[in-house]
């Protein structure tokens, strides 16, 4: 029973922290219809920027938002490489990801920055609440609601943004670029907005995960795009494809379910080295199961 409880708590904790990644990947993978490999660099960039600032004694919230800002800059640069230099969007992402590897090392100064003795957004929030007479501890029971509050705010922000004039133009850029350009939209600019927003979310996720895991590591981004894509696809396989709000909800739930499946895989005896294989199988299932479902319903 205690084991089951630990499993569920871990699923929500890790799921909510990685859900920001899912939201970021949703923007490029679903709205823009291409896997943006910048994620492999902007996710550890978020961790690196947050860690470097936390070590300097900067406020954790400030450090986390700065991490998101750094992610936005990374996304903007990928967009500029793609639009101004006319380089294929996947190659542009690979170039950004490659450059970010060195930049992340520079930002951190070494391959791994421990954050065990620095405050985090979680410890800071707990301390803040305790000043109002609560008696909370910085553990999984407080991390889950804190992450959830941040996540709901992020989801609301996204749903609101994608219902504005600019948000519609960004969505249409991914769906039918010729058409939205013929309505007077500079698609170079909307691509920049979309990629900046996507990578801001991804970097923010990296910042939160680093604080939760107690370190930022140069290797933390390896395979992260596939993780995000798996989460988005699992969400879509289960929830289907309707409105933006529904997609956002699906991406969040998809991430949580992905974490659960990974935890279960470990529980049934698979080793951490097998996790990539598990992710690959999950991706395949998420891509093919919806097709079977359609066939069965017909």
């Amino acid at each position: 029973m205690a084991q089951f409880q630990a499993l569920v708590l871990n699923m929500f904790e890790q799921g909510f922290l990685f859900a920001f990644l899912g939201l970021g990947v949703l923007i490029t993978f679903r709205f823009f219809r291409f896997p943006d490999l910048t994620a492999e660099g902007s996710y550890p960039l978020g961790g690196a920027v947050a860690a470097a600032l936390l070590v300097e004694g900067i406020d954790p919230f400030l450090a986390s938002f700065a991490a998101a800002g750094a992610g936005a800059v990374a996304g903007t640069i990928t967009a500029l490489i793609h639009t101004k230099l006319r380089i294929n969007n996947i190659i542009a992402g690979i170039i950004a990801m490659t450059a970010l590897y060195s930049i992340n090392l520079r930002v951190m100064g070494k391959a791994n920055v421990p954050l065990l003795n620095t405050p985090t957004v979680f410890s800071e929030t707990v301390d803040g609440l305790n000043r109002f007479g609560f008696n909370l501890h910085d553990n999984v029971y407080t991390t889950i609601p804190i992450a959830l509050v941040l996540l709901v705010a992020a989801a609301v922000l996204l749903v609101w943004f994608f219902a504005t004039d600019l948000g519609l133009a960004v969505r249409a850029t991914g769906q039918n670029e010729t058409m939205i350009a013929s309505l007077g939209v500079d698609t170079d600019r909307t691509k920049m907005v979309g990629l900046a927003l996507s990578n801001a979310f991804i970097a923010f996720s990296g910042a939160l995960v680093a604080q939760n895991h107690g370190f930022a590591d140069i290797g933390m981004g390896i395979g992260i795009l596939v993780t995000g894509a798996a989460a988005v696809l699992i969400g879509e396989a289960i929830f289907g494809d309707r409105t933006v709000a529904w997609w956002v909800l699906a991406a969040i739930c998809g991430t949580v379910i992905y974490r659960l499946l990974v935890a279960l895989a470990l529980r049934v005896g698979l080793q951490p080295v097998d996790l990539r294989l598990v992710t690959a199988v999950l991706l395949l299932l998420a891509l093919t199961v919806p097709r079977w479902r359609v066939r069965v319903l017909k």
Binding site: T164, L166, G167, N176, M179, L183, G184
Partner: peptide, 29 residues
């Protein structure tokens, strides 16, 4: 398929068309 956006709703398509050539900001569409 070329002159409309399939994945978006009729009202979203019309809202985008209504802003033809105008700046697009954070106003609810």
């Amino acid at each position: 398929g070329d002159s409309t956006c399939a994945a978006m709703t009729i009202e979203e398509n019309l809202a985008m068309a209504e802003r033809r050539g105008m700046p697009r900001g954070l106003r609810r569409a």
